[in-house]
Structure formats: structure tokens, C-alpha cells
Design a binder for these strands. Structure first.
Lengths: 251, 251
DNA sequence: GAGTGGTCTAGACCACATG
DNA sequence: ATGTGGTCTAGACCACTCC
């Protein structure tokens, strides 16, 4: 089992919901009942509940109780793990995924690349271009810019599987990611790989990823075939208002 | 000021980061220092910090401290409020937004619509179709299915502005949203409104929204012109392992 | 009034990082 | 050894809902 107590409680309630033990729109046990059930303090129960709320499983209502807002039809496979890798995602959807490494080089960030990636000029990085296929059909083209110091011994062979799996095996834990999703016209690469009769647009996900030390170790650009482009999101309105702060934007 | 103490602390630290008082990659004051500074207990400070981490401002590192991972260039307008409306979003980006109501009707959910929307058959709903423009250019077509009991007196005029603003004025608070984002071929409506020479694909966001009572009150489908389709996401790997099941984000 | 969730406190012990 | 964040407790008070 997971180490922390609140994690066990989370898992227990989560599986209860997904298994239909608690049904959509019904009320969960109250916090005090859960305390009794798990033999722990209220804070611990609340910690579990707040994560469940964050992931769209439940919604607490003051003075009333905690309502289940998850249902199997709509939320099929539960809350998405926002940072799951391509391989994980493909596996979840029942596809056989393969990876082809198109290029693999080690370079130093120059001024121009610095702008695009967010790495400081002079930083040594790996630039890796890969095509990922599901059941033999190319579905995404991924260019990763990877901090060289994070995986000094990286070889092309290492990235034939899951890059993240390799990194985690090296003790690198991906902790935070910031992504931007857009729709763009296909470029030459896209047309060549996805096919000329293929899509008239591609989904592009650009992301900055941080490790457990708060160091940005990857900038990646994923160009994805539309039919295989799906993103699930759960959002909660937090208690943080944001109207007052002045806003700047570039778009 | 906001009511809760942790909110004030959040805002204070947030603005400190956005104002450059704390710089990218530097360490924040330690939790105990923050306790002293704000004259409160550690839990309260931690509550604020955990929300900051969730929104990609900060990353705590055990045994070391809390590192700032936000920078103005990349994260321009701060953490997205994940549930902000079109009007808010457009305003944030400096566009003049307008809304044109194409159709407005009140119907009862049938079996087929129930599948698509998630409302139970027999439920009375409003179906509202609107085109939203930024600086006069149509950028999105939005079809909302709205629980009639949630806003019994709704008129076409009410939805000429922000639907959410109206709902909030009626005491309805949008609390949780579950969205799916895909890229699809334009349909006839899209081609007519966005123009034939326009995009070869549109971004589609389908969402289920819940109010503060945990009642699903809206199903919406937003079809968006690619050039105006941008989504920002911040994800954090929570402590919830997911061998069997998944985990969180948030924004 | 009784029960619910929302906020907060003061203190404890642990795991981890750094000297 | 000291300081840091991670987890947890026991208890308090508040705001809200429902009877």
C-alpha cells in the first residue's frame, strides 16, 4: 500500500466510487464518520477528500455533506493523471505503441533556442526527435529538448521506449508540467509523416517540465494527429479570486 | 481583502512572485519564516503554499526549501483560473468580445440527447447557441445545454453577455468542470461562420459543469477557430500513485 | 439545536538535505 | 546536529443547512 495514510483513504474512497459502491449524486459518509471508519483525525480525512474533489470525484457542500459527482459513463477511466506519458496513455486506450527515433543530437543552447525553450544560452541539451505510432499508424511527432546534465549517459537506444520511464529509472522525477495546447497548420514534417491526404491541422502541445528539485529539465513540442488528439481536464474553482491583479499578455 | 487568511497569504506571495520580488529558481522564505511573517500557524502557511504549487508558482523540495518555478516570459498571465469564462479570457487578452445569440429554446431531454449531454431523460433544459467574436471576428460557436431549473427565468437577452456572469448573479456558482478537448473537421456551421477559406479543423471543447451543490447544470460544446484556440495547463504530480488508478491538477 | 463542512492552532514525529 | 518540508493529531471556533 501507499505510504501515507491519506493516500490509502483516497484510494479506498476512489475505488469505492469507481466500483459503484457510492453512486453518482449520492452523499458520501460525513467527515466524522470517515474519521471513525479509518480511525484517524479529521485533517487526514480532509486531505484525502480535497484531492478527490480536485480530481472531480466528489464535491463538498457546506452544511450538507460530500456529494459524488463521478460517473462511469462520462468519466470513463477516472481522473486523468495529468503527467502520464504517451506509453501510459496509449496503453490505457488499448493501443500497441511504438517509438521511432528520427534524430538524436547533443547541442548547446544558443540565443534563439533559448527564447523558444526557456533554457539559458550555453546550456548543454539533448535534442531528440521521435515519431510515435499506435497500432502502426504514426500519431505524433515529438521533439524533446532535454537538459544534458539530467541524463548525462543518454543514448538513442534509451529513448526508444518511454523517455519518462528512463528518466525515472535514473532517479529523475517529473513533478510539475506547464503545457500550452494549440491547433496549427501542418508543416512539411507533419505532411510527410501523417500523409498528404491526412489531417488539415495538427494539435500541438508545448510543455515545460520540472523535476523534483524545481529544475526545468525538458521542453517538448508534440505535434499530434487530430484523430488521436484528446485531452481530458478536470478543473475546480479554487478559493483564490484573481480579478484584482493586473494582467499582462502577449497574445 | 479575501476572507480566509490562507488566501491573503497566497495572494501576497503570488504577487511577490509576479512582481519579481522572488525570482525564478530562487528559494522562497521557509515555512517557519513565513509563519513568523504572517503570524499564523504552519498549517495555514502550508495551505497557501500547496495552492501555489498547484498553480505552478512554486515547488517544495523536502529538506531544502520552496523553489520559485514561475517566470514572467513563459507564464505570462499567471496561473489560469481554470474556470474563467470566455469574456474573462478575452478581456485578459485585450480583445473586445461580443456575443450573438443564434438560437434559444427550451426543450425536454430525450433518450438520445441524454447520452450526449449526461442529463436524465425528461429533464427540462435550455439549449442556447451562440457565436462569440473577438474584435468582430467570429472565433467560437458555443452550444450550451442548461438545466432549466437552475435559471427558470432565463431569456435570450440574458445570454447576450456572459452566461456565467448571469448565473452567478442568480446565485449559481460554477464549482467543478470536466472538459474534453479534441480536434475535429469543421461541420457546415463552422464553415459558414468561420468562412470557407478558413480553418481546416476546429478545436472542440466539450464540458460538464457542476454547481456548488454538486448538480450538473450545464453541458456545453464549444467549437473554436484554431487561431484563437489556446489552452494553458499546469499539472502537478501529486502523491497519489496510480498503478491501478490515477491522479490529479489540476489547472 | 444538532450535524455538516471551512478555517485555524499548537504541537508532535518523520524523512530528507546540509553542514 | 540543525533546519527543511511531509504527515498527523486533538481540539477549537465559525458558517451553513435542516429539522
Amino acid at each position: 500500500m501507499a505510504r501515507a495514510l491519506f493516500q490509502n483513504i483516497y484510494r479506498d474512497i476512489q475505488s469505492g466510487i469507481e466500483r459503484g459502491l457510492y453512486s453518482y449524486q449520492s452523499m458520501l459518509l460525513s467527515e466524522s464518520e470517515l474519521c471513525a471508519r479509518y480511525g484517524c483525525s479529521r485533517s487526514t480525512v480532509r486531505r484525502a477528500l480535497s484531492e478527490l474533489a480536485l480530481n472531480g470525484y466528489v464535491q463538498p457542500i457546506q452544511g450538507k455533506g460530500v456529494r459524488i459527482i463521478w460517473r462511469p459513463q462520462t468519466d470513463d477511466r477516472g481522473a486523468p493523471d495529468n503527467l502520464e506519458s504517451f506509453a501510459e496513455r496509449a496503453r490505457h486506450q488499448g493501443f500497441e505503441s511504438t517509438v521511432y527515433v528520427r534524430s538524436f543530437e547533443r547541442i548547446t543552447v544558443d540565443e534563439r533556442l533559448s527564447q523558444a525553450t526557456g533554457f539559458s544560452p550555453g546550456t548543454p541539451i539533448f535534442v531528440i526527435n521521435r515519431v510515435k505510432s499506435a497500432d502502426g499508424i504514426p500519431v505524433s511527432i515529438e521533439t524533446s529538448h532535454l537538459l544534458a546534465t539530467e541524463a548525462p549517459a543518454l543514448t538513442p537506444r534509451d529513448v526508444e521506449g518511454s523517455l519518462y520511464a528512463y528518466l525515472e529509472s535514473q532517479g529523475v522525477a517529473i513533478t510539475t508540467g506547464k503545457r500550452t495546447i494549440t491547433i496549427e497548420a501542418p508543416n512539411d514534417d507533419d505532411q510527410m509523416i501523417f500523409g498528404i491526404d491526412g489531417p488539415q491541422a495538427v494539435g500541438v502541445i508545448r510543455g515545460h517540465f520540472f523535476d523534483s528539485q524545481g529544475i526545468m529539465f525538458e521542453y517538448s513540442e508534440i505535434r499530434q494527429k487530430p484523430d488521436f488528439f484528446t485531452i481530458h481536464e478536470t478543473c475546480t474553482r479554487t478559493m483564490m479570486p484573481h480579478g484584482t491583479a493586473p494582467v499582462s499578455s502577449r497574445h
